[in-house]
């Protein structure tokens, strides 16, 4: 549905997007994940015709983005990072106006608008001015407006940023439902959990480059060079840890609590030997778990971006 080759965006001489390539299959939910300033919005803007393509080729639904944008725009819906609806119009009017931009007849518009208000739980506020909406309601109506003409591809720029958990969850559920019914979805986000939960495939983007593309599982196993085992014992660990490190020289041992420790190895290994060894030393094991890396770990490993710095930056911005 979306094919991108060597896509580049220059602002003056500053390369915000540096020759990225990816493709999105029909019916997929594809996420572009990256920290602030990675170039996600710049990328999406070029795909939807709001920004000129500096170099590279984009085809959407079989049409060339440089030459056939109006044709493409008929098939796509766009939810920008900030709402672009009219403050002074009512919710329903905003939806109907959106539909009219795509040439829908009045009857069809009204029918579809009612449907969408219902789907997003906004029936009660349909006749209130948009400016009186809460942030979450605004985001939902903005998504609904993008869906008026039943696009086959939906683009969303940070669909859940800045809204409460419940609204975010509802939006994710709506996106999933839509996807089940056949809509291809392209979204950007800097929430790792969201990307992991929602997307079929994720592209990690940093400083204008895509560093890795894969399913959430693939991305996680890519950083599974480290295997972590967490062990909780019944009694105190005093003294045993040092000995353990000597005996199993390929393991890095870290005591993380009075009766918990973490073992890191470079190769996959079962928990068995450690449990047996500890048992023989008179320290019974209560629990031993193989810890899978989170998508966050994968992100750090693959992009070597300091997530803490990202978070601080995000907090400073909001």
């Amino acid at each position: 549905m979306i094919e991108v080759q060597g896509l580049t965006k220059l602002y003056g001489s500053f390369p915000a997007v540096r020759g990225i390539a990816f493709h999105v299959a029909r019916g997929e939910i594809f996420g572009l994940l990256g920290p602030n300033g990675a170039g996600k919005t710049s990328t999406i803007s070029m795909l939807i015709g709001l920004s000129r393509i500096s170099a590279g080729a984009v085809r959407i639904a079989g049409y060339d983005a440089t030459r056939e944008m109006p044709r493409i725009q008929r098939d796509i819906g766009v939810v920008p990072d900030e709402s672009n609806l009219y403050d002074e119009l009512e919710g329903l009017e905003n939806l109907c106006f959106s539909g009219a931009l795509y040439g829908m007849t009045r009857k069809r518009r009204e029918q579809r608008a009612a449907e969408l208000l219902d789907q997003f739980g906004l029936q009660a506020v349909g006749s209130k001015p948009f400016k009186t909406y809460s942030k979450g309601m605004k985001r939902k109506l903005t998504i609904a407006a993008a869906l008026m003409h039943e696009p086959s591809i939906l683009f969303l720029d940070e669909p859940t940023s800045g809204i409460d958990v419940a609204s975010a969850r509802q939006i994710r559920q709506n996106l999933k439902d839509m996807n089940e019914r056949g809509t291809t979805i392209f979204l950007t986000t800097h929430y790792i959990e969201e990307a992991g939960r929602l997307c079929d495939r994720i592209a990690l983007m940093v400083e204008g480059r895509i560093v890795r593309i894969g399913t959430p599982d693939e991305l996680m196993s890519a950083c599974q060079r480290e295997h972590i085992i967490e062990i909780t014992t019944a009694g105190p660990l005093a003294g045993v840890a040092g000995e353990l490190a000597k005996v199993f020289s390929h393991v890095r041992v870290r005591v993380t609590g009075e009766s918990t420790l973490r073992l890191q190895t470079d190769h996959a290994s079962g928990v068995g030997p450690f449990v047996v060894w500890l048992h023989e030393r008179g320290v019974p094991v209560v629990e031993a778990t193989l810890i899978r890396p989170t998508l966050e770990d994968a992100f750090v490993a693959l992009t070597s971006v300091d997530l803490a710095e990202m978070k601080r930056e995000r907090e400073r911005n909001s």
């Binding site: 109006p70 044709r71 725009q73 766009v78 920008p80 672009n84 609806l85 009219y86 931009l101 795509y102």
Partner: peptide, 14 residues
């Protein structure tokens, strides 16, 4: 400035 113009630019018209 309020970005609503962007939505018009997204409409499939010349």
């Amino acid at each position: 400035r309020r970005r609503s113009f962007e939505r018009l630019l997204l409409a499939p018209m010349s």
